[in-house]
Simulated scan of single mutants.
Amino acid sequence: MYDAATASEIGKTAPAMQRVRGTARVGFVNTAGQTRLKDLFQSGSAKVRLPKVYGEPATAVLINTAGGLTGGDRMDYDIAIGADAHAIVTTQTAERAYRSLGTSAEVTGHLSVGAEATLEWLPQETILFENSSVSRRITAELTGSARLLILESVVLGRAAMGEQLTRVFFKDSWRIRRDGKLVFADDLRLNGDPSDFFSGPATGQGAKAMATLLDCAPDAEDRLDNARICLESASSGSVQAAASAWNGHLILRFVATDSRALRLSLMAFLETYRSARLPRVWYC
């Protein structure tokens, strides 16, 4: 027999839903001319793998063992690259943001790059599902002539599965400082139906995926012509991209109606622009 009073009491005493917590910290230094691991910490669902590489920069692969994000989850990443070192940080696969019951998943990344050092932050795409809610914040501290190459790409649903999003919340905030001075700030906020805010000719014109690539270095402006040449060979009919440069920053924006086309364009561009292959996980 159904007892409404009993059911009500059960609801009151039910435990809160479990949420994902993850923290990963990775540090590299230059020792005798080689970049070596100095610091490694991981807890919760945040894991780090250090694949063997030969003739390539040291590489760290971030993994979310929870398989994705939902409301109330929190992931924190801290990457430190010492002076004269060079490292790549990427992810094992795309990050998936699932339906939220009201609160946002929070993702933070703090990047520190020493003098004459290079950090390539090249995670794979973030896929937003229906009613997902994600708030991400990336901060970077650069010293002297440090170089930061940073990529973030976002996909609105899985077109191959016939998904059509009607509501998402996604907030992305970047703050980059060099020698303590704020030199770059960028904010993106999507709230509502993507078909509304991506319908205009100046706002994607029906885009389903987008990406931002920033090269932050004292000589970044000198790479603008090369970047535009690389874009010509990497572009396709469903991908639009443009590049600009100022005050030690080279920035590229990509929008695409097809996420697979965007991924292939990004890979082609990065391989040509960097004159190097991407980490192996990008080809899996």
Rank of each mutant, 00 (worst) to 15 (best):
Y77D: 15
D172I: 06
L62V: 11
V29S: 10
A146K: 11
S236L: 01
N226W: 12
Y54V: 03
A66K: 07
V113A: 13
I176L: 15
T126G: 02
A211N: 02
L213H: 09
R263T: 05
R99S: 00
E106L: 15
T143E: 15
L148R: 15
G72R: 02
V26Y: 13
A46V: 02
I251H: 14
I81L: 06
L69S: 05
K47G: 08
L62Y: 10
P194K: 15
E232H: 00
R280Q: 09
G11H: 13
T59D: 04
R136E: 10
F28V: 09
G204R: 04
G33P: 06
E56M: 05
I63Y: 07
T212P: 00
L266G: 04
S100I: 01
T212N: 06
G44K: 13
I79Q: 09
L188I: 04
S235Q: 06
F197R: 14
T65K: 11
I138H: 13
L266N: 01
D172E: 12
L151E: 13
E116Y: 08
Y77V: 14
N226K: 14
T93M: 01
T139G: 14
S132G: 12
T103I: 05
E56R: 06
V183H: 05
N64Q: 14
T257K: 14
N131T: 07
A87Q: 03
P51A: 12
A234K: 00
G180M: 05
A276F: 05
V168R: 04
C230L: 01
E271K: 15
T23G: 08
G114D: 05
A159F: 00
S100H: 01
T93H: 02
R21W: 13
V155D: 02
N191I: 02
G192N: 08
S233K: 04
L231K: 02
A242K: 10
V29M: 07
A105F: 04
R274H: 14
Y2N: 09
L148W: 10
A245V: 12
P51E: 07
S259I: 06
S236G: 12
S195T: 12
L182I: 03
R49C: 07
L37Y: 05
G67N: 11
A97C: 01
V20M: 15
D225F: 05
D186G: 00
C284H: 07
V113P: 14
A202M: 10
V239T: 10
L165Y: 09
S236C: 09
D76W: 06
L40D: 07
D196V: 09
K181F: 02
T13I: 11
G55H: 04
R19I: 09
S265K: 06
W282A: 11
M17K: 15
E106C: 13
G102Y: 01
E130W: 06
A234D: 00
A83T: 12
V61N: 11
G248M: 13
V48H: 08
S275H: 14
L62T: 12
L262V: 11
